[in-house]
Design a protein around this nucleic acid. Structure first.
Length: 750
RNA sequence: UGGGGUAUGGCCAAGCGGUAAGGCAUCAGUUUUUGGUACUGACAUUCGGGGGUUCGAAUCCCUCUACCCCAUCCA
């Protein structure tokens, strides 16, 4: 964890911890129990529980059960299950927002008493109209003028179930013209005469997400409330509720990250539900589903999913992760864990005409590069099965396996050569007559025959028949919309695959690698000794030479897209006059003049500074860059420095007392402490060093320390000049005159 | 359209004014009784476009563009 760069959430947590904002990190995973958790939830679980673990805090599991009509206890179980299966422990008992209903109700009454909430009795349509649009302000309902007493009385009656659904709601009194739509007097409570799976029929009113969530976080002592991007607009209400209620610190703050998207699948509850209800899949735990239950039944390990979540990172950019990344995670995990066994999917009989009797061959469960122990016995006789795809009568170039003229090794056993191909009436190959090479037995092969491949096989009389379910991606398109994009071949069932007996008799594991096929998992539901069933978790990686059939979808060299510049808002006449003055009289370049002229605050600041020191270009630059940056965050009167001080700073640059690099540093300091620039330069000894006699030895030292980079530079990697300049500047603690250093470095290296 | 976000290779993603990390994918090669694994190497003269500031910009400023979220009595 030390060297790895941290994601932005962890960085926030660390900053807060360092600032002493919280004593302990408390996070929470707060799903609504209205559906089965999917791999997107796994990401959220990994983040919330992972952060708590990393910083010795704790994480709560909370069911956000504020909507009685959609939620159910079966989902609660699925959620608990998912968290546990992924290996996390929640702090204490599972929490439920419904447990906080009384407290929430009390907070609502407080808001009413403060005049910050009111009972609104407008109907739904009218309310929508009054809310306005994104460009038009809304209008407040006439009911907002009700007295506190009336509100209190009405709200209590709402709670007591004296009104019908939809007759009244409780709203926060915020701002009907807020540019953030969510802040236009958001609903706090609605009436719902419905049975709640936990609270029963006790409540006739239920809190809305925006009211319940922040307060639940607060009640639980959550420090970092982490959610997905679509709640960014809700953050304002989150803060409003907690601030307005004047809750004593420390209170939680909300932070948002991008939800997980994976190609060739869907992730929304709605679409997942459609698949289940439409019968396109066999339930929530269908192995093709991206649900935790589905992944689990498919055979994914918790470790692989956690590794996957770790590998994709946490950021704020909406993204679509390639399934290949998920597939890598499970292959990578299983590779070092599971036994290898032989299974023939599409059996082709091979009779070894020159072999008599039978034997047992000892074979390791693990390849040479997996440091695990374990062997089993493989029966062998003259009748075996190999996979149909491992024989080709008319092989393409580059085919490594058995052909009429190419011998192949039966893995762990002998090399065989094809002698005769037997076909049925339709010309299909139904059997191979082959001969084995007695001196080619695995381990003491003295035959000298070179083969290109070793293939899997099973002995005919001892092999067990199994059912194999071959899963492929559920959708055929990268960003599927609905059922029309379903992959018709997402499930193929092979009823009569043949597997070596040890798998069934010894049961060395539940997950296997079927050699040269992929990773498989004994289906936890349908498997029985009489009828073994295996799910394909994922195939082995195939190098391009084997999957020659696949048309190479090589880079479509898209032309660099031409961007059309939009129209720029024209300047007002005053701005235009200012612009002309700046460019003509003060000789500012048009870009700088443009920035200045269009911003009244900036131009005022600039002109005031100009009165103190007559350095039009220099001051313009620092004002349009550094001052402008500050002004994005702060108001003019919040600035810690005056225009005059900026002018003085510029004067030092003009006088070559300090470099522009140091000027930036001094600027930072001014903006922090408000100190005079000259004082800062003086007290910190920031006067720049231009004396080659001082700089040269430093350059020599840097050059001596970086022989490889010197070589690279001399070989033509000229961008390394910046590296050397940087190093030397660092040695001078930033005080070196960059122009001088640049020249000297170039000379010394050249 | 007002507001809030986001843009770094095919896909994720570090980077916070001084040599464009890393993973997946892809392509070569070596090892291999899995066309697997492991190992080695290749893969962004450039960070959405255009300007500006700077000795030096993915990073600071201006501007344009594209995409996502918000007008549920869902969460």
């Amino acid at each position: 964890m030390e060297n790895k760069s941290k994601d932005f959430l962890r960085r926030i947590v660390e900053e807060d911890l360092n600032a002493g904002k919280y004593n302990e990190v408390v996070t929470r995973f707060p799903p609504e129990p209205n559906g089965f958790p999917h791999i997107g939830h796994a990401k959220s679980i990994a983040i919330n529980f992972g952060i708590a673990k990393d910083y010795q805090g704790h994480c709560n599991l909370r069911m956000d059960d504020t909507n009685p009509t959609t939620e159910d206890t079966q989902y609660v179980e699925a959620l608990k299950d998912a968290v546990q299966w992924l290996g996390f422990e929640w702090d204490n008992n599972v929490r439920y927002t419904s447990d906080y209903f009384p407290k929430l109700y009390a907070y609502a009454i407080e808001l009413i008493k403060m005049g910050k909430a009111y009972v609104d009795s407008t109907n739904e349509e009218e309310m929508r109209e009054l809310r306005g649009t994104v460009t038009q302000a809304g209008k407040r309902s006439k009911y907002a003028e009700r007295s506190i007493e009336e509100n209190l009385e009405l709200f209590e009656k709402m709670k007591n179930g004296e009104f019908k659904d939809g007759e009244h709601v409780l709203r926060a009194k915020i701002d009907m013209s807020a540019s953030n739509m969510k802040m236009r007097d958001p609903l706090l409570y609605r009436i719902r005469h419905a049975h709640h799976f936990r609270a029963g029929d006790e409540w006739a009113i239920y809190p809305m997400y925006d009211f319940a969530h922040c307060l639940s976080d607060y009640i639980e002592g959550v420090s970092h409330s982490i959610c997905t991007l679509e709640f960014e607009n809700n953050r304002d209400i989150y803060n409003w509720v907690l601030d307005t209620l004047g809750l004593k610190p420390t209170r939680p703050y909300q932070h948002e990250f991008a939800r997980l998207g994976i190609n060739y699948t869907v992730m929304s509850k709605r679409k997942l539900l459609e698949l289940v209800e439409g019968g396109q899949v066999n339930g929530w735990d269908d192995p093709r589903m991206p649900t935790i239950a589905g992944l689990r039944r498919r055979g994914y390990t918790p470790e692989s999913i956690l590794n996957f979540c770790d590998s994709i990172g946490v950021a704020k950019a909406n993204s679509m992760v390639d399934v290949a990344q998920l597939e890598f995670a499970i292959r990578d995990d299983l590779n070092t864990k599971v036994p290898r066994v032989m299974c023939v999917m599409n059996p082709l009989k091979v009779t070894i005409t020159n072999y008599e009797g039978s034997e047992e061959i000892e074979a390791s469960y693990y390849p040479h590069d997996v440091p695990k122990e374990g062997t089993r016995k493989l029966p062998f006789s003259k009748e075996i099965y190999i996979d149909k795809s491992d024989f080709s009568e008319n092989p393409e170039k580059g085919y490594f396996r058995l052909t009429p003229t190419q011998a192949v090794r039966l893995k762990y056993a002998y090399i065989i050569s094809c002698k005769e191909v037997i076909k049925d009436d339709n010309g299909n190959v139904v059997e191979i007559k082959a001969e084995y090479h007695a001196d080619s037995k695995s381990g003491n092969d003295t035959s000298g025959i070179k083969v290109k491949s070793a293939i899997q096989w099973v002995e005919a009389n001892n092999a067990k028949q199994i059912e194999v379910r071959l899963y492929d991606r559920l959708f055929k398109t990268e960003a599927p919309e609905g059922v029309e994009d379903l992959n018709p071949d997402s499930l193929k069932i092979i009823k009569d695959a043949l597997i070596e007996p040890a798998v069934i008799n010894e049961k060395p594991d539940v997950r296997f690698q079927f050699e040269r096929e992929g990773y498989f998992y004994a289906d936890p539901v349908d498997y029985s000794d009489e009828k073994p069933v295996f799910n394909k978790i994922v195939g082995l990686k195939e190098s391009s030479s084997k999957k020659k059939k696949v048309v190479k979808q090589t880079a479509k060299p898209q032309p660099k897209k031409v961007q059309i510049d939009g129209e720029v808002v024209p300047m007002t006449t005053e701005e235009q006059a200012l612009f002309d003055n700046y460019t003509n009289e003060l000789k500012l370049n048009s870009e700088v003049a443009n920035t200045l002229a269009r911003d009244a605050q900036l131009s005022a600041f600039y002109q005031e500074a100009l009165e103190a020191v007559n350095s039009p270009v220099g001051i313009a630059n620092i004002v349009t860059n550094d001052v402008a940056r500050e002004l994005k965050q702060k108001e003019l009167n919040e600035l810690n420095y005056t225009p005059k001080q900026i002018a003085e700073l510029m004067k030092m640059v003009d006088d070559e007392l300090i470099s522009t690099k140091i000027a930036k540093q001094v600027f930072e300091e001014m903006s922090k402490s408000g100190e005079e620039p000259t004082k800062i330069v003086e007290s910190k000894g920031l006067v720049q060093i231009s004396d080659p006699a001082v700089i040269l030895p430093m350059i020599d030292e840097v050059i001596a320390k970086n022989p490889e980079n010197v070589e690279k530079f001399r070989a033509g990697n000229t961008k390394l000049l910046g590296f050397f300049v940087g190093q030397v500047l660092k040695a001078t603690k930033g005080k070196g005159n960059p122009k001088v250093v640049n020249e000297l470095v170039a000379r010394q290296l050249g």
